[in-house]
């Protein structure tokens, strides 16, 4: 383990360094645009808004990172976020005493959804894209049949927690940061975490090296469900109610995948890091924030987001070609035979 440690870390830091380079550029551009419009990008109010908008996507992206690292995808997250919000708000029903039951119900349900994803991908071996799409559709059928509009009410403690800030940092963002660090520890310091990278890099090699491939797959998908559930709780804390459409409106499936890829992870799995994903989320948040300052038409925001995703990933793709480990010097196969996408 120790022998591959440094090289792995070096590889990650080089990609991650590039992500944060992009982030710095985005921040500088944001500050300049803010200044020309007579607004301070680093004002406390703006930073609080920025961090608040980061939190929900942040939770989803932590889970999505785990799943993408092992070469799968989680397309069920928007529906998982929604079901967490309606279950939590429904059980709490505005009663202070129902805080814990509400949280536990929501998180248990979403973790089970993630577990089902994991079992389908890890044991039945259905392609992750298809399995999570299928499970997501099943959950969405349940959601829209049983809930027509906003339901339930957040318990008062949760609602007040949603507005609470320490300095300019919202409490929910601090909670997210703690979970983030825990998952960083899981990925870099535990056996299952390392196996996640191994399975993502090459499932066949991982299997032949004695890894039980199903274990990291099931764990990562379950955690993705759990984190989508936490994102749903943050939404309930902020809105005060649960809603069956809140996840789909947020577009959390595609945005979280985009954030992970913006963070330098390879969609095919095996390469990337949580720190990179954090950079990806912050890039998104800065762009959103500066577009808010510019009072850009909301539809044009999507155009800008699309451009940023494509350009950033195209830049990463150019850079990562020479970084690739070459086993055969003066390769005849070379660039033409670049890694075949396994899952997509």
């Amino acid at each position: 383990m120790s022998s591959i440690g440094p090289s792995l870390r070096a590889r990650l830091s080089s990609t991650t360094a590039m992500v944060y380079g992009v982030l710095v550029v985005v921040i500088i551009v944001s500050v300049i645009i803010g200044a020309t419009l007579g607004r301070n990008f680093f004002s406390q109010g703006n930073l609080t808004v920025l961090l608040t908008s980061t939190t929900v996507l942040g939770f989803v992206t932590i889970g999505q990172t785990l799943v993408i690292l092992l070469g799968s995808l989680d397309l069920s997250v928007p529906f998982t976020v929604s079901i967490s919000s309606v279950l939590a708000a429904g059980v709490m029903a505005g009663q202070p005493g129902n805080l814990l039951p509400g949280i536990i119900t929501a998180l248990a349900a979403t973790t089970v959804i993630g577990l089902v994803n994991g079992l389908l991908v890890g044991l039945v071996k259905i392609n992750g894209f298809i399995a999570t799409l299928g499970v997501g559709l099943i959950v969405s059928g349940y959601l829209f049949t049983n809930y027509q509009g906003s339901t339930g009410k957040a318990s008062p403690q949760l609602a007040s927690l949603g507005d609470l800030t320490v300095g300019f940092v919202p409490v929910m963002t601090i909670v997210m940061a703690l979970f983030f660090l825990a998952v960083v520890f899981f990925l870099t310091r535990t056996r299952t975490g390392m196996h996640t990278y191994a399975v993502g890099g090459d499932p066949a090699v991982a299997r032949m090296s004695g890894v039980h491939n199903a274990v990291p797959i099931i764990v990562a998908h379950s955690l993705s469900g759990l984190f989508a559930g936490l994102a749903g709780l943050v939404i309930v804390a902020r809105l005060g109610v649960g809603s069956p459409g809140v996840g789909t409106q947020g577009g959390y499936d595609l945005l979280s995948i985009a954030a992970v890829v913006l963070g330098g992870a390879v969609l095919a799995g095996g390469r990337g890091s949580l720190w990179g994903s954090l950079g990806g989320i912050l890039i998104f948040a800065c762009i959103d924030s500066v577009m808010g300052i510019m009072q850009l038409n909301p539809y044009l925001k999507d155009v800008v987001r699309g451009l940023v995703i494509i350009v950033a990933v195209a830049i990463y793709a150019r850079r990562s070609v020479p970084v690739r480990i070459s086993r055969f010097p003066a390769s005849t196969v070379g660039s033409a035979a670049s890694v075949k996408e396994r899952d997509l």
Binding site: V303, G306, L307, I309
Partner: peptide, 27 residues
């Protein structure tokens, strides 16, 4: 071209064009 020559994974490339095309449409 984005997928092949610029090596953006097709999932991301077509997601990007989706955002751009639908953004322009809605606008």
């Amino acid at each position: 071209v984005l997928t092949t020559l610029f090596r953006v994974p097709s999932f991301i490339a077509t997601l990007g064009t989706t955002l751009i095309v639908s953004g322009v449409t809605f606008y």
